[in-house]
C-alpha cells in the first residue's frame, strides 16, 4: 500500500514535468478559442496555426540556419579543441603549464564581461548580420579542451609511440589514431556543444537583425515577444512546438548519450 502511494506520487511528479509539453502540442493543434480548456488532447483538431505560422515567418529557413550554424560550430569545437587538448595532454613545450592555468582561469570569466566588446568586435569586422558572427566566436571553448585533455591523458603512451615509429605526424596521430578511440568523449563534447549552440538566443539577438539569417530560437523568441504573433496563443505554441521538436526527437533517440554527456559536464569542478 505504501509502495503504491509512492508510485502515485512519483508518477504525479513525472506528470508535472511532462504535462506542459503535452499541453503545448495539443493546444497548438486546437482551435484558438478552445485552447484554454484543452487538457491533454486537442479540441477541434486543426493545423491552422502551423499553416499560418509558415506563412508569417520563415521558420523553415531559420531551421536550416540553426542546423548549419550548430553543425559547423560543433565540428569546429571537436577539431580545434581536441587539437589543443592533445597538445596540452601529450606534448611538452615551453609555456604549456602556463597555458593550462590560463585555460582554467578563462573558464571562470563570466560571459557578461565580454558581451559588449565582442559585439563591437563583430561590428568592426563587419560580421553583424552574417553567420560569421554566430560561428567564429563559438569555434573553441575551454571546457571542451579540458575534457579532451583529461581523456587524452588516460590513453597509453605506447599507442602514440607506436604511431610515431610508423612515421605518423602529429595530425595523423590525433585524427586517425586518437579520435577513433575517443568516441565517447567526442560524443559528449559534440552533444553539449550542439545543444548549447542550438539553444543560444542572447548572442543571435544581438548580432543578427535580418530575418532570413536568424536562428530558429531567435526567430521564435522575436515572434513571441514582438507583435507578429498578434497575441495568438495557438501560433506562439506552434512555433514553440516546432522549436522543441528536433531536440526532443534527438533526445529520445540518444537519451543515454545525452544523460552521460550531462553527467560528464559535472566533472569540471
Amino acid at each position: 500500500m505504501k509502495k503504491f502511494l509512492f508510485y502515485i506520487l512519483l508518477g504525479l511528479a513525472a506528470f508535472a514535468f511532462l504535462y506542459p509539453f503535452i499541453w503545448m502540442v495539443s493546444a497548438s493543434l486546437s482551435e484558438e478559442r478552445s485552447i484554454t480548456d484543452v487538457s491533454l488532447w486537442p479540441v477541434a483538431l486543426t493545423f491552422d496555426h502551423y499553416i499560418k505560422l509558415f506563412e508569417n515567418i520563415p521558420i523553415a529557413g531559420s531551421f536550416v540556419n540553426s542546423v548549419f550554424v550548430a553543425t559547423i560550430v560543433t565540428f569546429g569545437v571537436l577539431v580545434f579543441s581536441s587539437m589543443a587538448g592533445y597538445a596540452l595532454a601529450r606534448h611538452r613545450f615551453k609555456g604549456r603549464n602556463l597555458l593550462f592555468y590560463f585555460l582554467l582561469f578563462t573558464m571562470t570569466l563570466p560571459f557578461q564581461l565580454t558581451l559588449i566588446p565582442n559585439y563591437i568586435l563583430m561590428v568592426q569586422f563587419g560580421w553583424t548580420n552574417s553567420f560569421a558572427a554566430l560561428i567564429f566566436p563559438g569555434l573553441l571553448n575551454a571546457f571542451a579542451i579540458l575534457l579532451f585533455r583529461q581523456h587524452f591523458l588516460s590513453i597509453p603512451q605506447d599507442l602514440i609511440d607506436a604511431a610515431r615509429i610508423d612515421g605518423c605526424n602529429e595530425w595523423r596521430i590525433l585524427f586517425q589514431i586518437l579520435w577513433p578511440v575517443s568516441v565517447p568523449t567526442l560524443i559528449t563534447v559534440g552533444i553539449i556543444t550542439f545543444m548549447t549552440t542550438w539553444n543560444d538566443v542572447l548572442w543571435p539577438i544581438i548580432v543578427i537583425r535580418e530575418e532570413h539569417l536568424m536562428t530558429m530560437p531567435q526567430l521564435v523568441t522575436l515572434f513571441a515577444v514582438g507583435g507578429r504573433s498578434m497575441g495568438q496563443i495557438g501560433m506562439k505554441l506552434a512555433s514553440a512546438t516546432l522549436l522543441a521538436l528536433p531536440i526532443i526527437i534527438a533526445y529520445l533517440i540518444f537519451q543515454k548519450h545525452f544523460i552521460q554527456s550531462m553527467a560528464a559536464s559535472g566533472q569540471k569542478e
Partner: peptide, 24 residues
Amino acid sequence: FFRGAFFMPVVVSGVVVTILWQQL
C-alpha cells in the same frame, strides 16, 4: 522513464519553456 521525464526540460530551449510557462 522517470529519469527521462525529469530530464526532458533540460534539453529544450529556454525559449520554449518561457513561451510555455507564460501561458501556464
